[in-house]
Amino acid sequence: MSNRDEGLLSLRPALLGEIHPQSSAEEIFQNTTIRPVLKFQNDLFIEAFINYAIKQKGQFFSLATDKQLSYIENAIHKDEKFRNALKGMIIGAFTVSEYRAYIKNSSNLNKRMMNMLIERLKDQVQLIVQ
């Protein structure tokens, strides 16, 4: 394992979620890699979303809470550039071996990553609007 990989693993939280004998490879990757990376990068995601909302004329901040939740979801689902930037923030925190596992099933893992990130941002909408 390289110094980079060791450093990354030492910075982020350990396993988040349960792994059962019947867990799929995707579930295992989600709980051993994606969840810890999302937690580790949380502050960066909030700042990235705030910056995105400001660049989109700041209308997000004047919306009602239910509309803000929809805005978060739409921004990530529909704005390919923003979504790719967020994916890069996640993938950039993978170790080399995690990246190798990720590329074997990137399409399904991307869906999981983005859905988890959307829920994470929605759960913290009050931090975003402060």
Rank of each mutant, 00 (worst) to 15 (best):
residue 32 T to M: 14
residue 33 T to Q: 10
residue 33 T to P: 11
residue 33 T to C: 14
residue 34 I to A: 11
residue 34 I to L: 15
residue 34 I to H: 08
residue 35 R to N: 15
residue 35 R to C: 14
residue 35 R to L: 15
residue 35 R to W: 12
residue 36 P to M: 04
residue 36 P to N: 03
residue 36 P to Q: 07
residue 36 P to C: 06
residue 36 P to R: 06
residue 36 P to L: 03
residue 36 P to I: 02
residue 36 P to H: 06
residue 36 P to A: 05
residue 37 V to Y: 11
residue 37 V to K: 09
residue 37 V to E: 13
residue 38 L to K: 01
residue 38 L to Y: 09
residue 39 K to C: 04
residue 39 K to T: 05
residue 39 K to Y: 05
residue 39 K to R: 12
residue 40 F to L: 12
residue 40 F to Q: 12
residue 40 F to D: 15
residue 40 F to G: 08
residue 40 F to T: 06
residue 41 Q to C: 01
residue 41 Q to W: 00
residue 41 Q to F: 00
residue 41 Q to L: 02
residue 41 Q to M: 02
residue 42 N to H: 12
residue 42 N to G: 10
residue 42 N to E: 13
residue 42 N to A: 14
residue 42 N to S: 15
residue 42 N to R: 11
residue 42 N to Q: 14
residue 42 N to V: 01
residue 43 D to N: 10
residue 43 D to C: 04
residue 43 D to L: 06
residue 43 D to A: 11
residue 43 D to P: 05
residue 43 D to E: 12
residue 44 L to R: 08
residue 44 L to H: 07
residue 44 L to C: 06
residue 44 L to V: 07
residue 44 L to S: 07
residue 44 L to T: 09
residue 44 L to F: 10
residue 44 L to G: 04
residue 45 F to D: 01
residue 45 F to I: 01
residue 45 F to H: 01
residue 46 I to M: 02
residue 46 I to K: 01
residue 46 I to H: 00
residue 46 I to Y: 00
residue 47 E to F: 01
residue 47 E to R: 05
residue 47 E to D: 07
residue 47 E to A: 04
residue 47 E to G: 02
residue 47 E to I: 00
residue 48 A to H: 07
residue 48 A to P: 08
residue 48 A to M: 06
residue 48 A to I: 02
residue 49 F to Y: 03
residue 49 F to P: 03
residue 50 I to K: 13
residue 50 I to F: 01
residue 50 I to P: 08
residue 50 I to A: 02
residue 50 I to E: 05
residue 50 I to V: 11
residue 51 N to V: 11
residue 51 N to C: 13
residue 51 N to L: 13
residue 51 N to I: 15
residue 51 N to P: 11
residue 51 N to Y: 14
residue 52 Y to I: 00
residue 52 Y to P: 01
residue 52 Y to F: 09
residue 52 Y to E: 00
residue 52 Y to C: 00
residue 53 A to N: 03
residue 53 A to H: 05
residue 53 A to I: 00
residue 53 A to L: 05
residue 53 A to R: 02
residue 53 A to M: 06
residue 54 I to A: 09
residue 54 I to D: 12
residue 54 I to Q: 12
residue 55 K to C: 09
residue 55 K to T: 08
residue 55 K to S: 11
residue 55 K to F: 08
residue 55 K to E: 09
residue 55 K to G: 13
residue 56 Q to I: 06
residue 56 Q to N: 14
residue 56 Q to T: 11
residue 56 Q to R: 15
residue 56 Q to D: 11
residue 56 Q to S: 10
residue 57 K to Y: 11
residue 57 K to N: 14
residue 57 K to C: 06
residue 57 K to F: 10
residue 57 K to Q: 13
residue 57 K to S: 13
residue 57 K to P: 05
residue 57 K to L: 09
residue 58 G to K: 04
residue 58 G to H: 03
residue 58 G to S: 02
residue 58 G to I: 04
residue 58 G to L: 01
residue 58 G to F: 03
residue 59 Q to Y: 15
residue 59 Q to N: 13
residue 60 F to L: 08
residue 60 F to Q: 05
residue 60 F to G: 07
residue 60 F to E: 04
residue 60 F to V: 03
residue 61 F to Q: 07
